[in-house]
Write a protein that binds this DNA or RNA. Structure first.
Length: 599
RNA sequence: GGUCCGGUAGCUCAGUUGGAUAGAGCAUCAGCCUUCUAAGCUGGGGGUCAUUGGUUCGAAUCCAAUCCGGAUCACCA
């Protein structure tokens, strides 16, 4: 059990022992970390019981503190300050904790929950390359998956590729018109970028055609409908749905280019998937569900043959599920995919990592599945995250105002290189080690930057300002880790010294305040993981690793480890250092960020 | 207009089921490398927690109203 729970339990038991007649519910026993300006480690708030027992806060606090102390040797003293009962934990607790866990590589990992969780993320469209906003999605999905795994769940990472639809046809039409047979090989352009170029090209041509028609006196709505290039795209979509061999061939070819490009990017990002879904395979599945719902009378048909669900009882509107011509809409395929996922993997929970602009869409999806009596409805969780915006507003791929993911990665790595060279820290590295280091630092900084903010908040990124490598960054945490590794190297120890290494350690001296704080913060890691998993929130882990690295740096400055005052302190501090490095490393692994031993 | 989300230092953000004098980073100013990696450490300045009212021993946190910003409400995806 983690310490905060132990304290809470001790406090609860003590108050029950003192006053057996009152009803104590858990919410009344408020336990917090003691503020640094007071003596003690954990604080119990006395107020909730003051009125109930009609006692003065200080009197009750004293009784309560004495009872806690008497019951458990873990506590050595207490102080009551204006209604707050501050408890001090014994040095013995801290040192036993450290000796018991410093080399426990599974520290923080939970037991198997038996839960099967799918996390769907990334889910790109195949008409354009990934941009900065997609990076947030990918990093979030990957990190949340790893955090949920660490929390004892079986996790299936899924990617649902939007590989069909009018947007793909737009790129295809533009390529046919303007491409002159261009391929990634012939042009030397990465496949996803090449296809994305024609998507932008389509929109330019479309705008020009609309403008031309309007110049001839057509009104804007009609012009937008009548522009030849748009009609061509719609015709191509129709042919695609009919399975026209030529269209299908071009579609496969161009999607193939995009996948090659994506693979390169995913590889650099270190993002992987256990299961790929393609909308071209799943887009028809929802129709059957809709037809069944219709047969059961849960849905209704309008005169033109379109099928609807009435969600007004749930506080929403009527929602279209099938068009008048019988073709499916966006939500239709989602119904099918949700059911498919559930049946294929027997999921307890299905997480969708999707931007908050689709909040309504996902809640509609859940309501529909619920109404249709599909069991997969209950497990749906929308991990809704805020969009990444530019100072000028949203990125628009149609207009080409995006920060490209590949460019961003290159820039970050170049910056890591420049700063490493500038600080003259390249000595003793081989060329290969250096380029790996630059990737580690550059990509780490990028991931941390996007993960450190609460997912639900939108972010504004100014491309003119580079992402910092100082302060609240991955680099800061990596640096603390590298420093520890350097100490361990000089002491002839590996990163994970075998169990017997500090067997000779016996605690006899009192802990320095910073020693105690370090151990206390290390002890909090499992609780942090729990919180991150509970809330699907990797930023909790970012904040924690930064705090731990920061405290270590303070410690490092204040106390020497290798030249400690005596052997006992040296052993203690080495164990602390080993454990700190391990926790930082494990936490960063969950975030998908590599940890250098040297930098 | 309906629904939902956000508003905390100049900027970017933390702030646990309501708890003590609201914290970091960046920027700025002043210090610290003959001592385990200065990508670091120490300290200063910087706040009407959007506003108003309510709930109570106690509110950045809960409730209501208002203001500001955003998203969404398609036979688009």
């Amino acid at each position: 059990m983690i310490l905060s729970q132990l304290v809470r339990l001790a406090a609860k038991n003590a108050i029950i022992a003192l006053y057996p007649d009152i009803a104590v519910d858990d919410a009344m026993v408020a336990v917090n970390l003691t503020k640094p300006e007071f003596k003690g480690h954990y604080t119990v708030v006395v107020f909730p019981f003051v009125k109930l027992l009609r006692k003065k806060p200080d009197v009750l606090g004293k009784e309560w503190g004495e009872a806690i102390l008497k019951a458990d040797a873990m506590f050595t003293s207490f102080e009551v300050v204006s209604g707050f009962l501050n408890l001090t934990i014994s040095d013995d607790f801290w040192t036993s904790f450290l000796t018991g866990h410093f080399n426990d590589t599974t520290f923080g990992r939970f037991g198997d929950t038996g839960q099967r969780v799918m996390v769907e993320y990334s889910s790109p469209n195949t008409n354009k390359p990934l941009h900065f906003g997609h990076l947030r999605n990918n990093f979030l999905g990957a990190a949340v998956s790893e955090i949920l795994k660490e929390a004892g769940n079986t996790v299936i990472k899924a990617n649902l590729v939007n590989d069909r639809g009018i947007h793909i046809c737009k790129s295809m039409i533009a390529w046919k018109r303007y491409g002159n047979g261009a391929t990634p090989e012939r042009t030397g352009i990465k496949g996803d970028h090449l296809v994305g170029y024609y998507y932008v090209k389509f929109n330019d041509a479309y705008k020009a055609e609309v403008a031309a028609l309007m110049a001839e006196g057509m009104d804007d709505k009609t012009a937008e409908r009548e522009a030849p290039i748009m009609k061509e795209a719609q015709e191509m979509l129709r042919l695609w749905e009919m399975g026209d061999p030529e269209v299908r061939h071009l579609w496969q070819t161009m999607n193939g280019w995009v996948y090659q490009g994506f693979d390169v990017t995913y590889n650099r990002l270190g993002v992987t998937f256990d299961k790929m879904y393609y909308e071209s395979d799943t887009y028809l599945l929802g129709k059957r569900i809709v037809e069944e719902g219709l047969a059961k009378g849960l849905l209704f048909k309008k005169e033109n043959g379109s099928v609807w669900i009435d969600l007004q009882p749930d506080g929403l509107d009527e929602k279209l599920l099938l068009r008048g011509d019988g073709t499916s809409v966006y939500i239709t395929q989602d119904l099918g995919t949700a059911k498919l996922k559930y049946e294929e993997f027997h999921l307890d929970k299905s997480v969708y990592v999707i931007a908050d602009e689709q909040n309504y869409h996902i809640s509609v999806l859940r309501f529909i599945l619920k109404r249709l009596g599909e069991p997969c409805a209950d497990g749906i969780y929308h991990l809704s995250y805020g969009m990444v915006e530019l100072p000028t507003g949203r990125m628009k791929s149609r207009e080409g105002t995006v920060v490209d993911a590949d460019d961003m990665i290159d820039e970050m790595i170049a910056m890591a290189k420049a700063q490493t060279e500038e600080s003259g820290k390249t000595l003793g590295f081989t060329e290969g080690e250096l380029s790996r280091l630059y990737e580690t630092i550059g990509l780490g900084a990028l991931k941390f930057y996007l993960l450190r903010v609460d997912p639900k908040k939108k972010m504004i990124f100014d491309p003119k300002e580079s992402i910092d490598l100082h302060g609240f960054t991955a680099t800061f945490v990596q640096y603390a880790h590298a420093r520890i590794c350097s100490i361990l190297r000089k002491e002839g120890l590996g990163k994970e010294p075998p169990a017997g290494t500090f067997a000779g350690y016996t605690a006899t001296l009192p802990l320095e305040p910073l020693e105690q704080k370090m151990i206390q913060l290390l002890e909090q890691y499992p609780g942090i993981l729990h919180e991150a998993a509970d809330e699907y929130n990797p930023s909790t882990v970012c904040n924690y690793t930064f705090g731990l690295a920061q405290l270590f740096n303070t410690f490092y400055d204040a106390h020497s480890i290798s030249k400690a005052e005596n052997e006992e302190k040296k052993q203690l501090r080495l164990m602390m250092a080993v454990m700190t490095a391990m926790v930082l490393r494990n936490a960063f692994k969950l975030l998908g960020i590599a940890m250098p031993d040297k930098m």
